[in-house]
């Protein structure tokens, strides 16, 4: 069996009394696109944020490309990594947020170049050329000098994707990337994500866009109440689900 690129094992997380994740285990193979679906509060966003260590897990472990995230096993005990070590581990993942979270005081180009120049310490000239290429790739070559406030939601989200790609991540995480968009702007963001999937980027996508999941995902995972209820190829989970809860969710969404 091939080593999975992301391995999630027995992960639990509680926020106060609310159990957001209960014993979740999941594999994502390199080059795969995995879509996480489920109602709000089902734990799908929390799971994604655990992979990027924006949320620290209570129990279990997540391995990325063979590296245990956020912790080190030493003498039979777990030791939490420090701020700098966690920041270094985050370099191999890119994250796209529901609310874009572009830096409003920087232009589109500066947003994309910020990480490579400030964090990876790459040469500004080389980074600028690459950032312009990335902006062209997401269809925004002419918006490089614009500030986020001058861009539409769809354009902002595409800049955010370019910003994440500029770090040359091995894994891209998308947290409901189209939920905050006006309906007519959803398509342009999904098109960029489809292009990314075709280039064999490993992706985990939390989404309500079942059409996108059906078309692009290699596997779909349905979550409810902090647990994985059902997983499999999109044709099976979305069209012929085995579990009653999956069926109920799908009929509610498609209604």
């Amino acid at each position: 069996m091939i080593q999975p690129f992301v391995a999630i094992r027995n992960v639990s997380k509680a926020f106060g009394k609310f159990q957001a994740l209960q014993n979740v285990s999941l594999d994502v193979q390199a080059g795969q696109v995995l879509c996480l679906i489920g109602a709000s509060g089902s734990g799908k966003t929390t799971l994604l944020r655990c992979v990027n260590q924006l949320v620290r897990i209570d129990r279990g472990g997540i391995w990325l490309d063979g590296d245990l995230l956020g912790m080190r096993v030493q003498n039979g005990r777990l030791h939490v990594l420090n701020d700098a070590e966690i920041a270094r581990q985050r370099l191999s993942t890119g994250m796209v947020f529901q609310r874009f979270n572009l830096f409003p005081h920087m232009t589109a180009l500066q947003n994309v170049a910020e990480g490579p120049v400030q964090v990876q310490r790459r040469k500004a000239g080389e980074v600028k050329a690459e950032a312009l290429e990335l902006l062209a790739r997401v269809g925004l070559a002419d918006k490089a000098a614009n500030y986020p406030s001058q861009l539409s939601g769809g354009q902002q989200q595409r800049v955010a994707i370019a910003r994440a790609l500029a770090m040359r991540p091995k894994l891209m995480l998308f947290d409901e990337p189209t939920s905050a968009l006006d309906p007519e702007l959803v398509g342009e963001v999904l098109a960029v994500m489809k292009e990314l999937a075709r280039s064999h980027m490993t992706m985990i996508v939390v989404t309500h866009e079942l059409g996108f999941a059906r078309e692009v995902a290699d596997r779909v995972v349905y979550m409810d109440a902090g647990r994985i209820v059902e997983e499999g190829p999109p044709g099976q989970v979305l069209s012929a689900p085995n579990e009653a809860r999956t069926k109920a969710f799908l009929s509610a969404v498609l209604a």
Binding site: D83, R90, G94, M95, F97, N101, Q118, A160, A164
Partner: peptide, 14 residues
């Protein structure tokens, strides 16, 4: 906004 801090963390900032 706290999202700004998360976005900064997500591109590897300390």
């Amino acid at each position: 906004d706290v999202g700004q801090y998360e976005a900064a963390q997500a591109i590897g900032m300390s």
